[in-house]
Simulated assay, not measured.
Amino acid sequence: MQIWEQLREKHRGKTFGVLAGGVLGIIYLFFGLWRMLIFVLIVYTGYYIGKKLDRNEPVFPIEDTWRWLMDKWRLFR
């Protein structure tokens, strides 16, 4: 029981992300070919988002991405 309490207190986002990814992955397992790879990808994505939420970081750094795109592809040089 101590493990679940520690996971809930210290790693709430990662735990929720892996559980959500696992549930979505299991649902997907019933419907396609590259099942295992897609399942692992879904679980890892849930873990990654949960880790970002635990660290209070943005899940997708929109400002950094926008700045990079604008530096890469300027319309008028």
Rank of each mutant, 00 (worst) to 15 (best):
I3S: 05
I3P: 00
W4R: 08
W4K: 00
W4F: 15
W4E: 10
W4V: 10
E5H: 13
E5M: 07
E5K: 07
E5D: 09
Q6H: 12
Q6F: 14
Q6E: 12
Q6G: 05
Q6L: 14
Q6S: 10
L7I: 01
L7A: 07
L7N: 04
L7W: 07
R8H: 10
E9A: 14
E9H: 15
K10H: 13
K10M: 09
K10I: 09
K10E: 11
K10P: 03
K10L: 14
H11P: 02
H11I: 03
H11T: 03
R12C: 14
R12Q: 14
R12W: 15
R12H: 11
R12M: 15
G13M: 05
G13I: 02
G13L: 08
G13A: 09
G13V: 01
K14Q: 14
K14P: 11
T15C: 14
T15Q: 13
T15E: 05
T15H: 15
F16S: 12
F16H: 15
F16C: 06
F16V: 12
F16K: 05
F16M: 12
G17S: 06
G17W: 01
G17T: 07
V18W: 04
V18H: 07
L19H: 07
A20K: 00
A20N: 05
A20C: 08
A20V: 03
G21F: 04
G21C: 05
G22Y: 00
G22T: 05
V23Q: 03
V23L: 13
L24K: 02
L24S: 13
L24C: 08
L24E: 02
L24I: 12
G25Y: 02
G25M: 06
G25N: 03
I26P: 01
I26W: 12
I26G: 11
I26L: 11
I26T: 09
I26R: 06
I26K: 05
I26Q: 06
I27D: 10
I27V: 01
I27R: 02
Y28K: 06
Y28E: 11
Y28A: 13
L29Q: 04
L29H: 01
F30M: 09
F30Q: 09
F30R: 11
F30H: 10
F31D: 05
F31I: 04
F31R: 04
G32T: 00
G32K: 10
G32M: 02
G32P: 00
G32I: 04
L33T: 08
L33K: 07
W34Q: 11
W34H: 07
W34A: 06
W34Y: 01
W34N: 03
W34C: 06
R35V: 08
M36L: 14
M36V: 07
L37R: 04
L37Q: 08
L37N: 10
L37S: 08
L37T: 06
I38E: 03
I38K: 02
I38P: 01
I38S: 05
F39P: 00
V40Y: 10
V40E: 04
